[in-house]
Computed example of a mutant assay.
Amino acid sequence: MADEIPIPDEYAGQRFDRVLARLFPDYSRSQLKGWIEAGHARLDGQAVRPREPVHGGQLASLDAPDRLDEHSSVSAQAIPLHIVYEDEDLVVLDKPPGLVVHPGAGNPDGTLENALLHRFPELAAVPRHGLIHRLDKDTSGLLVIARSSRAHARLTEAMQAREIVRRYQALVIGSMPSGGTVDAPLARHPVDRKRIAVRQGGREAVTHYRVAERFPFHTLLDVKLETGRTHQIRVHMAHVRYPIVGDPVYGRRLSVPRGATETLAESLRGFRRQALHAARLSLTHPVSGETIEVAAELPTDFQALLRALREDARAREAEARRRADR
């Protein structure tokens, strides 16, 4: 059933989408605009354009489709979740590698969304089941989940305004001399529609990175997203010719450095996903206004690969010293 609210006289002459945002503050402006265009939000029972001027006393009605999520095909499933922060308005969890966020082709269930509906049944009535953003299947780390429509609207607007700070750790191929910024627009690949590519005319995409640890043939980076496009870090790192280790789409074929220790060789051969982890997250709480900062440790496979790289680096340094002493 649609919610109906009379439009106050003081809003006369303003655009319908802006007035609707004031009358229904639990939803973001982008959500409301889409619903107006789809006919889910009406003025005096009539479908109108978002910029239609309103008059005092008219009736604004909203039948938000996301309120029907409890009847969707996504089922609740008991899948373990690693919660790192939780209150009545939001949740921050640490997603393991290998867990798909949304059901889709090839992954009809067993996803993070299924797990969320089991752990937090109230998400059935929240837009997108509380999800604010996503991570690729084989990327690990922090994700924000809204537990109410009000929190979802405010967090979505904060994400769009680039007020939620996300920092990643990425292991790339090659010894980077220094950090920097990649400012290169992204769009769908012109041939392979499953891939993203740097393309003129694409959406703005900006990635900042700095060297956290350097190895003879690899570099561990701290990465900060200014924008959050699909596959952004993976594509940008490949674009500057330092692809992420193990990336099956944008990376290079497996190459074990000459003279590598057996441990490193085995670790590189066994690492079959992109070495990318959403490590730190900072945001303003959508209700209290306090600053929330959380962190997530690297997964065990990523930690093991770093240990192997450090062991290899020490072995190479020891060998170099022996040769210098001869």
Rank of each mutant, 00 (worst) to 15 (best):
V91L: 14
Y168M: 03
R321H: 12
P121K: 03
A115N: 06
A41R: 12
V191G: 09
D66R: 04
I132N: 11
V126Y: 05
V74M: 13
D192G: 00
A151S: 12
R307I: 04
D94R: 02
L59S: 13
A2V: 06
N114D: 10
A38L: 05
S140N: 07
T263S: 15
P257N: 10
Q169C: 12
V198F: 08
S75T: 08
S73C: 11
V91D: 09
F16K: 03
K194M: 07
G141F: 00
P177S: 13
L123W: 02
Q14T: 08
R272A: 15
S72I: 07
A12F: 00
L23W: 04
D89Q: 09
R258Q: 14
H277N: 07
G179R: 02
A170F: 02
A197R: 14
N107W: 03
R199T: 10
D66N: 08
D222R: 03
A47D: 07
R166V: 08
S61I: 04
P103A: 13
V182N: 01
R193M: 05
H71Y: 12
V48E: 10
K95P: 05
P96H: 12
A197V: 09
E88P: 05
T261K: 08
V206R: 03
P121L: 02
L298Q: 03
L264E: 14
S267I: 02
P80Y: 02
A184P: 13
T219K: 06
T156Y: 09
G180T: 07
E293D: 13
L43M: 02
G174T: 10
L93V: 05
G201H: 12
S72M: 08
Q200Y: 02
P80D: 07
R195D: 06
T300K: 12
D3C: 04
R49I: 00
A170W: 03
V126G: 05
A158W: 01
V165Q: 15
R147S: 06
A308Q: 12
L117E: 10
R241K: 13
H285S: 11
P286A: 05
E4M: 06
R280G: 08
Q303I: 06
V198S: 08
A115F: 00
A47T: 09
E297Q: 08
A76W: 01
E10F: 01
G201S: 13
R280M: 04
L43E: 11
E204D: 15
L81Y: 01
G228E: 09
G174W: 06
R167F: 05
R51A: 12
A76L: 01
G34H: 05
H189L: 00
T181Y: 02
D63T: 09
P80K: 00
R269Y: 10
R150K: 08
H239Y: 14
S282C: 15
H133A: 02
V54F: 00
A304C: 12
R42Y: 04
I7K: 11
Q77Y: 03
V245Y: 03
R67T: 03
H285F: 01
Y209K: 08
Q274H: 12
H82K: 14
V54W: 00
Y85G: 11
R119A: 14
S148K: 15
Q169M: 09
L123T: 13
P185A: 04
F215G: 01
G106C: 05
Y11P: 08
A21T: 15
D247I: 02
